[in-house]
Nucleic acid binder design. Structure first.
Length: 561
RNA sequence: UGGGGGAUCGUCUAACGGUAGGACAGCGGACUCUGACUCCGCCAGUCUAGGUUCGAAUCCUAGUCCCCCAGCCA
C-alpha cells in the first residue's frame, strides 16, 4: 500500500465509531461487511467509496467483506456487468477471498421464508394491477387503503403463491405483499411488494424462476444468511431500515445484521447516476463505459489513474451522513500526489515548433543523461539524443513576450533541459506570418545545462530531437461537463462540454516512450501525467493525458497576468 | 396539518461539555535545470433566536433552510 494522503488519517468516522461501540459492548465479536452491487452497469468512483468503506472496515477490524451481487431483477442485469464489477473491485485493490455471493444463491431460501410469512399471516398475494395498487397506496400526506385481497385465507395465499412460482400467471398479474400497515407514515411499510412475477431469464439461474424477490425482501435476508454484521448503504435506504428490521424480526433469520447509512459520493462537473452514465454510453456521447472521460473505474483505469490514488482520495473525503458534493480538484490532487512519486519522467512535445541551432555541428548527435524520476533516485537515468534540429513546445515561444512570460523569445536565452543554453536569433515565418521555425545559437560551454560563468536563465524548456523523436497521438481530456451540477438546468446532455476531448496528431515524443506499457504512468515533463492508451500500438502510439501538472503560468495568463 | 434524515471556512471533514483543527481550492513568498514537486505564510466556518452551564459546534426549546420517500428498480 502506498503512502496515505497527507492529513487524511485512515478511518475515523461515525461508522467506525459504531463498530467500536458494538465491539466494546460485546454485541459483535467479529465484523462482516459486504459490497452489494446490482450488475446493471459499470462501477464508478462513487462505488469506490462504498468499496473502500466496506472492505476497509473489514480489513481494519480483522473481519471479512463479501462481494455480493444483488441480482434480483433479471430484466436489467447482465453477465457483462458481473464480470466488469469483479474486475474493477480487484483492480481497486480488494479481495473478497472465497466470499463471492449472489442474492440469487438464496432464491430457494427466500422463497421458503416467503411461505413462512404467509403461514404467519404476515404476507398475502395481491391481484391488484400496478396502477390500482399505486392509487391505493395513498400519498405522502394521506394514508393508503387496504387491498380487497388483503384478507385472503392462508391456504388461498399459499396456493396462489405456489402457482405464481409455477408460472401460471403472466407478468404483473399478482404480487406477494407483506402485511404491515397501509396507514404507516413510512410508505415502505404500506404492505411492500416482496415478490413479483417476471418471466425473464436470469444470468445465473436461467429459467428456473419466474418470480423474483424485491430488493427489500432479498437484501437484509442475504445479509442475515451471510452473517453480515454491519450492512452499510447509502442515505436513500434510510426509510427502508424499518422494513429491513421488520423482515429480520419476523423471519427465522440465522443472524441479526444492522443497517447503517452514509452519504454517497458526489463530484462537481460529473454525473454518477447510473441512468445518466448508461445514457451517455447508449447514445454514443462517449465511446463506451471505459471512455477516459467517464467517471467509471474502467475509464479511470484506462485514463491512467492508479488505484492507490482513488483509495487515497476516498479516504481524504471521509464518511459522513450529510449530503455533499466534493470538488473534483480534490480528486485531481490525489491523482497528482500519487503519480508524482511513482511516474518516470519523459520529454514529449505536444505542439511542435522546430528549433534549429545554427552553430551546432551538422550530423553530430550527443547523448545526454536525463533523470528518470527526481522523486525516486533509485529509478536512475536514461540517455537522450541531442542534435542540431529539435522540436520545442510552440507555446514556449512568444515573439512579443508579455512581462510575465519568461520562456523563449527573440534574443532571449533559455535552457534546453539536460542540454544547453540556447538563444533565439531569428524567427522564420510563412507567408501568412505564422512562426514556422526558430533559428538559435547555443553556448557549447553549457553542456548539460549549466553555465560555467554561473549565469542564470529563467526558463528551462523540454524538447525532443527532430530526427530521433517518434510521432504520437495525444488525447487531452477536459471535464465531460462544463456545469458544476450537470442537469441542474433540466437536461444534462445540454451541459456536455464540447471540448472534453482534444486530439493532438502532430506530437513528437522521446523514443523511449515507444516502449511504454499500456496504462503505465509517465510524466511528460512540464505537461502532465500520461499513459499509453488501449488503442496504442508500437506502430501508432497513442497517449492519454491522465491529469495535467499544476500550472501557475496558465493561471496567471488566464487571469490576464 | 405524512414519515425519515441533515446543516461547521468557497468545498470535504474533525471535535463526543473545556484553545473550532486538517485537507482541497484561492492568495502571497522561498526554493527550483519541470512556472512541477517541496517548504513557509495568509484568507476563511459552527443555520437563526432563546435557554441550561464557570464554560456550548456539542445539551434543551422554538424556528429556518436543504435532502430522501408515493417502482411489481436497487
Amino acid at each position: 500500500m502506498t503512502k496515505e494522503t497527507a492529513g487524511a488519517q485512515p478511518g475515523r468516522d461515525f461508522i467506525r465509531d459504531i463498530i467500536d461501540a458494538d465491539i466494546a459492548a460485546g454485541r459483535n465479536t467479529d465484523v462482516v461487511t459486504r459490497f452489494p452491487p446490482e450488475p446493471n452497469g459499470y462501477l464508478h468512483i462513487g462505488h469506490a467509496k462504498a468499496i473502500c468503506l466496506n472492505f476497509g472496515v473489514a480489513q481494519e477490524y480483522g473481519g471479512r467483506c463479501h462481494l455480493r451481487f444483488d441480482d434480483t431483477n433479471p430484466t436489467k442485469e447482465e453477465q457483462e456487468y458481473i464480470d466488469s464489477i469483479k474486475h474493477d473491485v480487484r483492480w481497486l485493490g480488494f479481495d473478497w477471498g472465497p466470499h463471492l455471493y449472489y442474492a440469487s444463491d438464496y432464491f430457494e431460501q427466500l422463497y421458503d421464508w416467503a411461505e413462512h410469512l404467509i403461514r404467519a399471516g404476515k404476507a398475502y398475494v395481491d391481484d391488484l394491477p400496478a396502477e390500482e395498487m399505486r392509487a391505493m397506496r395513498g400519498s405522502l400526506t394521506e394514508p393508503g387503503r387496504n387491498s380487497p385481497y388483503r384478507d385472503r385465507s392462508l391456504d388461498e395465499n399459499l396456493d396462489l403463491f405456489r402457482r405464481m412460482r409455477d408460472g401460471e400467471f403472466p407478468n404483473g398479474a399478482r404480487v406477494l405483499r407483506a402485511k404491515i400497515d397501509m396507514a404507516a407514515g413510512n410508505i415502505n411499510l404500506r404492505d411492500p411488494v416482496l415478490y413479483r412475477i417476471l418471466h425473464a431469464e436470469h444470468p445465473r439461474t436461467g429459467k428456473k424462476w419466474c418470480i423474483y424477490p424485491t430488493y427489500d425482501f432479498a437484501h437484509g435476508q442475504s445479509d442475515a444468511i451471510e452473517g453480515v454484521t454491519h450492512s452499510l448503504c447509502t442515505l436513500e435506504f434510510e426509510d427502508h431500515r424499518p422494513l429491513y428490521d421488520w423482515l429480520i424480526e419476523n423471519l427465522p433469520a440465522p443472524s441479526r445484521p444492522r443497517q447503517y447509512e452514509f452519504a454517497r459520493l458526489n463530484l462537481n462537473f460529473t454525473v454518477l447516476s447510473k441512468r445518466f452514465l448508461t445514457e451517455l454510453v447508449r447514445e454514443g456521447r462517449v465511446s463506451g463505459w471505459d471512455d477516459p472521460r467517464m467517471p467509471t473505474l474502467a475509464a479511470l483505469r484506462r485514463r491512467g489513474v492508479p488505484p492507490a490514488a482513488i483509495r487515497n482520495f476516498v479516504r481524504s473525503v471521509g464518511v459522513a451522513r450529510a449530503n455533499s458534493v466534493v470538488d473534483v480538484a480534490m480528486f485531481e490532487h490525489a491523482v497528482r500526489e500519487c503519480l508524482n512519486k511513482t511516474s518516470q519522467r519523459r520529454m514529449a512535445v505536444l505542439r511542435p515548433l522546430k528549433l534549429v541551432i545554427e552553430n551546432y555541428p551538422i550530423g553530430v548527435i550527443e547523448e545526454l543523461a536525463a533523470v528518470n524520476n527526481p522523486e525516486d533516485p533509485a529509478s536512475g537515468t536514461r540517455r537522450i539524443a541531442f542534435g542540431r534540429e529539435l522540436y520545442v513546445e510552440a507555446e514556449d515561444f512568444m515573439e512579443h513576450p508579455s512581462p510575465s512570460f519568461y520562456r523563449l523569445s527573440p534574443a532571449r536565452e533559455v535552457r534546453l533541459r539536460y542540454g544547453y543554453l540556447v538563444t533565439c536569433r531569428e524567427v522564420v515565418k510563412d507567408a501568412a506570418g505564422e512562426v514556422m521555425e526558430l533559428i538559435c545559437t547555443y553556448d557549447p560551454a553549457t553542456y548539460g545545462g549549466n553555465a560555467p560563468d554561473g549565469r542564470k536563465v529563467r526558463a528551462t524548456l523540454h524538447w525532443v530531437s527532430a530526427v530521433h523523436a517518434v510521432p504520437a497521438e495525444i488525447r487531452l481530456y477536459n471535464p465531460l461537463f462544463n456545469a458544476p451540477d450537470p442537469g441542474a438546468g433540466g437536461d444534462f446532455l445540454a451541459d456536455l462540454n464540447p471540448r472534453s476531448l482534444e486530439i493532438l496528431t502532430q506530437s513528437r515524443v522521446e523514443p523511449a516512450l515507444a516502449a511504454a506499457g499500456q496504462g503505465e504512468a509517465v510524466q511528460f515533463e512540464r505537461q502532465g501525467y500520461f499513459c499509453a492508451d488501449l488503442d496504442s500500438t508500437p506502430k501508432r502510439l497513442v497517449f492519454n493525458r491522465t491529469v495535467g501538472l499544476r500550472d501557475s503560468w496558465a493561471k496567471a495568463r488566464a487571469s490576464g497576468g
